[in-house]
């Protein structure tokens, strides 16, 4: 057990040191979410009129953009594994008496830490697009963002542990990002798409993350009435339904966590199997 903890903090600590050393990485942690917001905010608001004055498009997309920003950072954090392999440092980590789960956790912590930070940074911008997020909503969002960031980061670490070159890693992650973003409800509700696409969306952990975060953010703004208002007007139900069951915030979080746990174990196993 102590080997799990030591692995976790030693590996995480080094990632943290590295992050502070590499200014480009540190800067991108700030710049990426800001860029996303400026582009989506300024661009879309002009093109699309608000949905019947109730929910405007930017507000609808805001939770999705938060998730996307977390997704990018978290997935690409897996690059650090490939990098460590290329410079040989991974060998040093793997011959140390550290639990492989601990190593995977430490790597994941770094990626999810930055992801979580970015997610929260974006929250500061919510008032500027007319969303007010109260303290309760913020406290609710924190664990949700955290769970999502850890899960996505674990996916990145797992992919990283399987790849032998940075090019291969980039290739795989780019292939992952497009479907994960588009079949997640960031841009359109997943219950109103063709069946095959809906199934893909429901296998996607991001779907549940987006759903949970959107419920918290938009319910804070429109209270419970917003869902029914939209449905009543023949609009769409924005939520995610699995086997006819409408997912609540905490059910979403549970699905994301289970997904994350499975991927973490896969990453640890992958570290266990390989050396050189």
């Amino acid at each position: 057990m102590s080997e799990v903890f030591t692995g976790f903090w030693v590996v995480g600590y080094r990632e943290f040191l590295r992050l502070l050393r590499e200014r480009a990485r540190l800067a991108s942690a700030f710049v990426t979410p800001l860029l996303l917001l400026v582009i989506f905010g300024a661009g879309f608001n002009r093109i699309v009129a608000p949905l019947d004055g109730q929910v405007d498009l930017v507000q609808f997309m805001f939770p999705g953009i938060v998730c996307m920003s977390v997704l990018m950072t978290a997935l690409f954090s897996g690059l650090s594994v490939v990098w460590d392999r290329e410079v040989g440092f991974l060998k040093v980590v793997l011959v140390a008496p550290l639990s492989r789960v601990g190593i995977a956790l430490g790597k994941t912590a770094a990626g999810s830490g930055v992801g979580l930070f970015q997610g929260l940074l974006l929250m500061i911008l919510a008032p500027f697009i007319g969303l007010s997020i109260g303290l309760i909503a913020l406290v609710t969002l924190l664990p949700l963002l955290f769970v999502l960031a850890v899960t996505l980061s674990a996916i990145g670490i797992f992919v990283g542990s399987q790849m032998r070159s940075q090019q291969a890693f980039h290739g795989v992650v780019e292939i992952l990002i497009v479907p994960m973003v588009f079949f997640s409800g960031v841009f359109f509700p997943v219950d109103k798409v063709p069946t095959w696409l809906g199934i893909l969306a429901k296998l996607n952990p991001l779907t549940y993350g987006v759903d949970a975060i959107r419920q918290v953010i938009l319910n804070a703004r429109y209270s419970a009435s917003f869902e029914s208002t939209l449905s009543a007007k023949g609009g769409v139900d924005l939520g995610v339904t699995v086997f006819g069951h409408r997912m609540s915030v905490w059910e979403d979080a549970l699905v994301v966590s289970i997904f994350g746990l499975i991927v973490l174990v896969m990453a640890a196993r992958s570290f266990n199997r390989q050396g050189t």
Binding site: L17, R18, K91
Partner: peptide, 15 residues
């Protein structure tokens, strides 16, 4: 119980 010096480089150059 072991110590190693590997054949290739294995240091973290940023540290």
């Amino acid at each position: 119980s072991i110590g190693l010096v590997f054949q290739g480089p294995t240091l973290d150059e940023y540290l």
